[in-house]
């Protein structure tokens, strides 16, 4: 087939101009989150003392830090699926969450006695945390990857990784409502490992699924 013939074929193909990418990703996010939230209510549910916990700084901070990461990852993913889009500012934004968490860790180390550091880091339920966050993130990541295939990421593994970070941080925000460990030491360690795991899964999946 010559280029001339190819152009005729492409010019005649007027179907399949997909919906706006932003809308696709938002819809995928909504579906994935709905499934994850359903999963959360069926299996874990909020912690019994959530009403009193909601008044404590440490508990609320878990949502702040995970949602800050989610917003930055979401903005970055929207750039990464468009060839030639400038992602610089969102890359910086992605650092805000980790920096906030580092500050919180330092404040925690300053405010509790050294003997309490280790128990707070280990927490009550690190294993459940490590399993729940990736499981809650899975439907979100799956929905995102499907939507991202409509895009054109020139770095598929990176786009997949950031989608993983987005899914992981949202999974973590959901799990935070169940989790009784509120110390930033616990959050930095176990939430961190869990989100990193989902990010790595996203990178592997992206490298395979998001090529075009």
């Amino acid at each position: 087939m010559s280029t001339e013939q190819l152009i005729r074929m492409l010019a005649a193909d007027r179907t399949g101009r997909a919906a706006a990418l932003g809308a696709r990703l938002a819809a995928a996010l909504a579906v994935g989150l709905a499934v994850a939230a359903g999963l959360f209510w069926l299996t874990l549910g909020p912690r019994p003392d959530i009403a009193s916990a909601a008044g404590t700084l440490r508990f609320l901070f878990k949502f702040v830090v995970t949602l800050v990461v989610a917003v930055a990852a979401g903005g970055l993913v929207l750039r990464l699926v468009r060839p030639g889009a400038d992602a610089g500012a969102w890359l910086v934004a992605l650092l805000v969450g980790p920096v906030l968490l580092a500050v919180a860790v330092v404040l925690e180390l300053l405010s509790v006695p050294q003997s309490a550091w280790w128990p707070r880091l280990v927490g009550a339920n690190s294993y459940l945390c490590l399993v729940s966050i990736p499981l809650l993130a899975a439907p979100v990541l799956a929905a995102l990857l499907v939507a991202l295939r409509e895009g054109a990421p020139t770095r598929p593994a990176v786009a997949g990784a950031i989608a993983g970070a987005l899914a992981g941080s949202l999974g973590a925000a959901l799990y935070a409502a169940h989790c009784v460990d509120d110390s930033p030491l616990f959050v930095a360690t176990w939430y961190g490992i869990a989100i990193a795991l989902v990010t790595a899964i996203g990178a592997l999946a992206g490298a395979r699924l998001l090529r075009w």
Partner: peptide, 13 residues
């Protein structure tokens, strides 16, 4: 040719 097809299929981006 490959670039033309890619531009065509990804024109919504």
């Amino acid at each position: 040719q490959e670039t033309l097809v890619a531009i065509h299929l990804k024109r919504h981006t």
